[in-house]
Amino acid sequence: MSKIIFNEIQRKQLESNPNVASVSDRAIQYNAEFKIRAVKENMNGKGPTQIFMENGFNLDVIGAKKAQSAISRWKNTYKTLGEQGFLEERRGKGGTGRPSTKVISSEKKLEKAEARIKYLEAELELLKKLEELERQVKK
Rank of each mutant, 00 (worst) to 15 (best):
E83V: 12
N17V: 02
K46G: 02
E15A: 12
K3I: 00
E125P: 00
G47Q: 13
V137L: 12
A122W: 02
G63F: 01
A32M: 04
G56I: 09
I62Y: 03
G63L: 00
E131K: 13
Q136A: 12
L120D: 10
K46H: 10
A113H: 08
L81D: 14
K128L: 11
F6I: 02
M1L: 10
A70P: 00
D25P: 01
A38I: 00
K12Y: 02
N44Y: 01
N19A: 13
G97H: 03
P99K: 13
K46C: 12
I4F: 01
A67G: 06
S106I: 12
I51A: 03
V39S: 01
R11A: 05
E123N: 09
K66E: 11
Q84K: 15
E132Y: 05
I71E: 05
G63P: 01
P18H: 10
V61F: 02
L126I: 04
V20K: 08
P18E: 04
A70K: 07
I5K: 04
Q50C: 08
T49V: 12
P99Q: 11
P99Y: 01
T96D: 07
K40S: 00
E123I: 09
K3N: 09
E33G: 06
K66A: 14
G94C: 06
K79A: 14
E54Y: 04
S2V: 00
S105I: 02
K40N: 12
I5A: 06
F34I: 05
L133K: 15
N7M: 04
G82V: 09
E107K: 14
G85Q: 07
E121W: 00
E89K: 10
K46D: 10
D60C: 04
K12T: 11
E131M: 07
G56H: 10
G47V: 03
G56P: 10
E107T: 09
M43T: 04
K3R: 09
V39P: 03
K93Q: 12
Q84A: 14
E114S: 11
Q10F: 01
N17K: 08
T80M: 12
I117K: 15
N44E: 13
E134R: 14
N19F: 03
S105N: 05
N42E: 11
M1P: 09
I36Q: 05
G94K: 05
L14G: 06
V39E: 02
R11W: 01
S105M: 04
E89R: 08
A67F: 02
I62K: 05
